[in-house]
Protein backbone atom coordinates (compact mmCIF):
# COMPACT_ATOMS: atom_id res chain seq x y z
CA UNK A 1 0.00 0.00 0.00
CA UNK A 2 1.53 3.33 -1.03
CA UNK A 3 1.70 6.21 1.44
CA UNK A 4 -0.86 8.08 -0.62
CA UNK A 5 -3.56 5.44 -0.17
CA UNK A 6 -2.79 5.18 3.56
CA UNK A 7 -3.20 8.94 3.91
CA UNK A 8 -6.52 8.85 2.01
CA UNK A 9 -7.96 5.99 4.10
CA UNK A 10 -6.89 7.67 7.35
CA UNK A 11 -8.50 10.94 6.32
CA UNK A 12 -11.77 9.23 5.36
CA UNK A 13 -11.85 7.55 8.77
CA UNK A 14 -11.30 10.98 10.35
CA UNK A 15 -14.16 12.51 8.33
CA UNK A 16 -16.52 9.76 9.47
CA UNK A 17 -15.36 9.67 13.10
CA UNK A 18 -18.28 11.78 14.32
CA UNK A 19 -21.04 10.44 12.10
CA UNK A 20 -24.06 12.11 13.70
CA UNK A 21 -22.39 15.52 13.61
CA UNK A 22 -21.26 14.93 10.08
CA UNK A 23 -24.67 14.03 8.65
CA UNK A 24 -26.62 16.62 10.63
CA UNK A 25 -24.17 19.36 9.64
CA UNK A 26 -24.07 18.22 6.02
CA UNK A 27 -27.80 17.71 5.45
CA UNK A 28 -28.71 20.67 7.63
CA UNK A 29 -26.34 23.02 5.84
CA UNK A 30 -27.25 21.87 2.35
CA UNK A 31 -31.00 21.87 2.82
CA UNK A 32 -31.38 25.00 4.88
CA UNK A 33 -29.25 27.06 2.48
CA UNK A 34 -31.31 25.73 -0.40
CA UNK A 35 -34.67 26.47 1.23
CA UNK A 36 -33.65 29.97 2.27
CA UNK A 37 -32.30 30.81 -1.19
CA UNK A 38 -35.43 29.41 -2.85
CA UNK A 39 -37.70 31.38 -0.51
CA UNK A 40 -35.80 34.58 -1.32
CA UNK A 41 -36.00 34.16 -5.09
CA UNK A 42 -39.58 32.90 -5.01
CA UNK A 43 -40.54 36.10 -3.21
CA UNK A 44 -38.70 38.20 -5.85
CA UNK A 45 -40.26 36.29 -8.77
CA UNK A 46 -43.77 36.62 -7.31
CA UNK A 47 -43.55 40.26 -6.28
CA UNK A 48 -42.44 41.18 -9.80
CA UNK A 49 -44.86 38.77 -11.52
CA UNK A 50 -42.00 37.07 -13.40
CA UNK A 51 -41.44 33.47 -14.47
CA UNK A 52 -37.85 34.05 -15.56
CA UNK A 53 -35.04 36.39 -14.50
CA UNK A 54 -31.81 36.77 -16.51
CA UNK A 55 -32.67 33.57 -18.34
CA UNK A 56 -33.22 31.57 -15.14
CA UNK A 57 -36.53 30.07 -13.99
CA UNK A 58 -37.19 29.43 -10.31
CA UNK A 59 -36.50 25.63 -10.53
CA UNK A 60 -33.24 26.38 -12.39
CA UNK A 61 -32.22 28.88 -9.73
CA UNK A 62 -33.09 26.32 -7.06
CA UNK A 63 -30.82 23.77 -8.73
CA UNK A 64 -28.13 26.44 -8.93
CA UNK A 65 -28.37 26.99 -5.16
CA UNK A 66 -28.11 23.27 -4.64
CA UNK A 67 -24.93 22.87 -6.66
CA UNK A 68 -23.11 26.18 -5.97
CA UNK A 69 -22.80 25.88 -2.13
CA UNK A 70 -21.74 22.24 -2.49
CA UNK A 71 -19.10 23.28 -5.03
CA UNK A 72 -17.86 25.85 -2.54
CA UNK A 73 -17.67 23.14 0.13
CA UNK A 74 -15.68 20.88 -2.22
CA UNK A 75 -13.25 23.70 -2.97
CA UNK A 76 -12.72 24.39 0.70
CA UNK A 77 -11.68 20.76 1.29
CA UNK A 78 -10.17 20.27 4.72
CA UNK A 79 -11.22 23.80 5.66
CA UNK A 80 -9.44 26.63 7.43
CA UNK A 81 -6.51 25.79 9.70
CA UNK A 82 -5.25 22.69 7.85
CA UNK A 83 -1.70 24.05 7.80
CA UNK A 84 -1.58 27.15 10.00
CA UNK A 85 -2.54 25.24 13.14
CA UNK A 86 0.49 22.99 12.77
CA UNK A 87 2.82 25.85 11.94
CA UNK A 88 1.53 27.63 15.02
CA UNK A 89 1.89 24.75 17.50
CA UNK A 90 5.06 23.23 16.04
CA UNK A 91 3.25 20.14 14.72
CA UNK A 92 4.79 20.74 11.31
CA UNK A 93 7.98 19.10 12.60
CA UNK A 94 6.69 15.61 11.93
CA UNK A 95 6.09 16.34 8.25
CA UNK A 96 9.55 17.81 7.88
CA UNK A 97 11.27 14.67 9.20
CA UNK A 98 9.03 12.15 7.40
CA UNK A 99 10.31 10.90 4.02
CA UNK A 100 7.30 12.52 2.30
CA UNK A 101 6.87 15.91 0.66
CA UNK A 102 5.08 17.95 3.40
CA UNK A 103 3.07 20.07 0.99
CA UNK A 104 2.21 17.00 -1.10
CA UNK A 105 0.93 15.29 2.05
CA UNK A 106 -1.16 18.33 2.94
CA UNK A 107 -2.52 18.59 -0.61
CA UNK A 108 -3.54 14.94 -0.51
CA UNK A 109 -5.40 15.24 2.82
CA UNK A 110 -7.09 18.42 1.54
CA UNK A 111 -8.18 16.75 -1.69
CA UNK A 112 -9.45 13.66 0.13
CA UNK A 113 -12.02 15.91 1.77
CA UNK A 114 -12.79 17.47 -1.62
CA UNK A 115 -13.35 14.04 -3.20
CA UNK A 116 -15.60 13.01 -0.34
CA UNK A 117 -17.76 16.12 -0.77
CA UNK A 118 -17.70 15.57 -4.54
CA UNK A 119 -19.39 12.19 -3.99
CA UNK A 120 -22.00 13.98 -1.89
CA UNK A 121 -22.55 16.47 -4.69
CA UNK A 122 -23.22 13.63 -7.10
CA UNK A 123 -25.86 12.11 -4.81
CA UNK A 124 -27.52 15.41 -3.88
CA UNK A 125 -27.53 16.68 -7.46
CA UNK A 126 -29.09 13.46 -8.74
CA UNK A 127 -31.88 13.72 -6.15
CA UNK A 128 -32.35 17.44 -6.79
CA UNK A 129 -32.49 16.93 -10.56
CA UNK A 130 -35.12 14.24 -10.10
CA UNK A 131 -37.30 16.49 -7.92
CA UNK A 132 -36.81 19.88 -9.59
CA UNK A 133 -36.60 19.11 -13.29
CA UNK A 134 -39.08 16.74 -14.93
CA UNK A 135 -37.49 16.83 -18.41
CA UNK A 136 -36.07 13.43 -19.56
CA UNK A 137 -32.37 12.72 -18.95
CA UNK A 138 -30.05 13.12 -21.96
CA UNK A 139 -26.57 11.86 -22.65
CA UNK A 140 -25.26 15.45 -22.80
CA UNK A 141 -26.33 15.95 -19.19
CA UNK A 142 -24.26 12.99 -18.06
CA UNK A 143 -21.26 14.25 -20.04
CA UNK A 144 -21.67 17.69 -18.45
CA UNK A 145 -21.89 16.17 -14.99
CA UNK A 146 -18.74 14.07 -15.44
CA UNK A 147 -16.78 16.96 -16.99
CA UNK A 148 -18.10 19.33 -14.33
CA UNK A 149 -16.94 17.06 -11.53
CA UNK A 150 -13.48 16.80 -13.05
CA UNK A 151 -13.46 20.60 -13.44
CA UNK A 152 -14.35 21.05 -9.74
CA UNK A 153 -11.54 18.74 -8.69
CA UNK A 154 -8.99 20.79 -10.66
CA UNK A 155 -10.54 23.94 -9.16
CA UNK A 156 -10.06 22.41 -5.69
CA UNK A 157 -6.31 22.23 -6.41
CA UNK A 158 -6.40 25.95 -7.26
CA UNK A 159 -8.31 26.72 -4.08
CA UNK A 160 -5.81 24.62 -2.11
CA UNK A 161 -3.07 26.94 -3.40
CA UNK A 162 -5.09 30.02 -2.47
CA UNK A 163 -5.79 28.70 1.01
CA UNK A 164 -2.18 27.62 1.45
CA UNK A 165 -1.06 31.19 0.76
CA UNK A 166 -3.33 32.37 3.60
CA UNK A 167 -2.32 29.51 5.91
CA UNK A 168 1.41 30.06 5.42
CA UNK A 169 1.18 33.59 6.78
CA UNK A 170 1.23 31.67 10.10
CA UNK A 171 5.02 31.46 9.68
CA UNK A 172 5.07 35.17 10.50
CA UNK A 173 1.78 35.91 12.26
CA UNK A 174 0.30 34.20 15.31
CA UNK A 175 -3.24 33.63 14.12
CA UNK A 176 -4.30 33.54 10.50
CA UNK A 177 -7.73 31.86 10.39
CA UNK A 178 -9.19 35.29 9.66
CA UNK A 179 -7.42 35.29 6.27
CA UNK A 180 -9.11 31.99 5.40
CA UNK A 181 -12.49 33.43 6.34
CA UNK A 182 -11.81 36.52 4.23
CA UNK A 183 -10.88 34.32 1.29
CA UNK A 184 -14.11 32.35 1.73
CA UNK A 185 -16.26 35.53 1.75
CA UNK A 186 -14.54 36.93 -1.32
CA UNK A 187 -14.48 33.63 -3.22
CA UNK A 188 -18.13 32.83 -2.49
CA UNK A 189 -19.32 36.31 -3.44
CA UNK A 190 -17.17 36.91 -6.51
CA UNK A 191 -17.50 33.27 -7.55
CA UNK A 192 -21.28 33.45 -7.69
CA UNK A 193 -22.09 31.16 -4.73
CA UNK A 194 -24.25 33.85 -3.08
CA UNK A 195 -25.84 35.34 -6.20
CA UNK A 196 -25.38 33.95 -9.75
CA UNK A 197 -22.98 36.22 -11.60
CA UNK A 198 -25.58 36.88 -14.28
CA UNK A 199 -27.34 39.20 -11.78
CA UNK A 200 -24.18 41.31 -11.32
CA UNK A 201 -23.79 44.58 -13.27
CA UNK A 202 -22.29 43.79 -16.66
CA UNK A 203 -19.12 45.90 -16.35
CA UNK A 204 -18.31 44.35 -12.97
CA UNK A 205 -18.97 40.87 -14.35
CA UNK A 206 -16.43 41.36 -17.13
CA UNK A 207 -13.72 42.03 -14.53
CA UNK A 208 -14.83 39.24 -12.18
CA UNK A 209 -14.70 36.65 -14.97
CA UNK A 210 -10.94 37.03 -15.17
CA UNK A 211 -10.38 36.45 -11.45
CA UNK A 212 -9.85 32.85 -10.30
CA UNK A 213 -13.03 32.69 -8.20
CA UNK A 214 -15.61 32.87 -10.99
CA UNK A 215 -13.85 30.17 -12.99
CA UNK A 216 -13.59 28.00 -9.86
CA UNK A 217 -17.26 28.21 -8.80
CA UNK A 218 -19.55 29.59 -11.52
CA UNK A 219 -17.55 27.86 -14.26
CA UNK A 220 -18.19 24.23 -13.19
CA UNK A 221 -21.67 24.98 -11.82
CA UNK A 222 -22.81 26.46 -15.14
CA UNK A 223 -21.26 23.54 -16.98
CA UNK A 224 -23.12 20.96 -14.85
CA UNK A 225 -26.43 22.82 -15.07
CA UNK A 226 -26.16 23.35 -18.82
CA UNK A 227 -26.13 27.13 -18.36
CA UNK A 228 -22.91 27.53 -20.35
CA UNK A 229 -21.94 26.09 -23.72
CA UNK A 230 -18.94 23.73 -23.87
CA UNK A 231 -16.94 26.57 -25.46
CA UNK A 232 -17.79 29.00 -22.63
CA UNK A 233 -16.93 26.34 -20.06
CA UNK A 234 -13.63 25.65 -21.80
CA UNK A 235 -12.80 29.37 -21.71
CA UNK A 236 -13.57 29.51 -17.97
CA UNK A 237 -11.49 26.38 -17.41
CA UNK A 238 -8.54 27.87 -19.31
CA UNK A 239 -8.74 31.07 -17.24
CA UNK A 240 -8.52 28.91 -14.12
CA UNK A 241 -5.64 26.88 -15.59
CA UNK A 242 -3.78 30.10 -16.30
CA UNK A 243 -4.02 30.98 -12.59
CA UNK A 244 -2.69 27.62 -11.40
CA UNK A 245 1.05 28.11 -12.20
CA UNK A 246 0.94 31.64 -10.75
CA UNK A 247 -0.60 30.31 -7.54
CA UNK A 248 1.71 27.27 -7.45
CA UNK A 249 4.90 29.31 -7.73
CA UNK A 250 3.62 31.80 -5.14
CA UNK A 251 2.94 28.90 -2.74
CA UNK A 252 6.39 27.38 -3.28
CA UNK A 253 8.13 30.71 -2.80
CA UNK A 254 6.22 31.44 0.40
CA UNK A 255 6.80 27.88 1.67
CA UNK A 256 10.57 28.24 1.18
CA UNK A 257 10.64 31.65 2.88
CA UNK A 258 8.41 30.41 5.67
CA UNK A 259 10.58 27.38 6.34
CA UNK A 260 13.51 29.69 6.97
CA UNK A 261 11.42 31.41 9.64
CA UNK A 262 10.05 28.22 11.22
CA UNK A 263 11.47 27.52 14.68
CA UNK A 264 9.70 24.19 15.19
CA UNK A 265 8.91 24.86 18.83
CA UNK A 266 5.40 26.19 18.47
CA UNK A 267 4.10 29.40 19.99
Amino acid sequence: MSWQSKVVSTEIRKILAYRSDFWINFLGQTLIQLFIARALWQSIFESNGLTEMKGLTLPQLTLYYLVAPLTMKILMGENIGFLSREIYDGGLNRYLVWPLPPLGYKALTFLTYSCFYLAQLLIIYSIGRLLLDDSPYQLEELVRLILGMGYILVAAIGYFFLMSLCEMVAFWADNTWTLGVMLRFVAAFLGGAFIPLTFFPENLRHIIEFLPFASMISGPVNLILGRASFMESLTAFLIMLAWLPILYFSVMKLWKKGNLQYTGVGM
Binding site: L40, S43, I44, S47, N48, M53, K54, F189, F194, I195, F199, F200, P201
Partner: peptide, 14 residues
Protein backbone atom coordinates in the same frame (compact mmCIF):
# COMPACT_ATOMS: atom_id res chain seq x y z
CA UNK B 1 -23.16 44.25 -1.77
CA UNK B 2 -25.48 41.22 -1.75
CA UNK B 3 -28.50 43.43 -1.09
CA UNK B 4 -27.27 46.13 -3.45
CA UNK B 5 -27.14 43.58 -6.29
CA UNK B 6 -30.54 42.16 -5.35
CA UNK B 7 -32.08 45.63 -5.53
CA UNK B 8 -30.55 46.15 -8.95
CA UNK B 9 -32.87 43.35 -10.06
CA UNK B 10 -36.01 44.07 -8.03
CA UNK B 11 -37.60 47.30 -6.72
CA UNK B 12 -38.83 45.71 -3.45
CA UNK B 13 -38.01 42.70 -1.31
CA UNK B 14 -40.72 41.16 0.88
Amino acid sequence: SFYKILFMNTPTLA
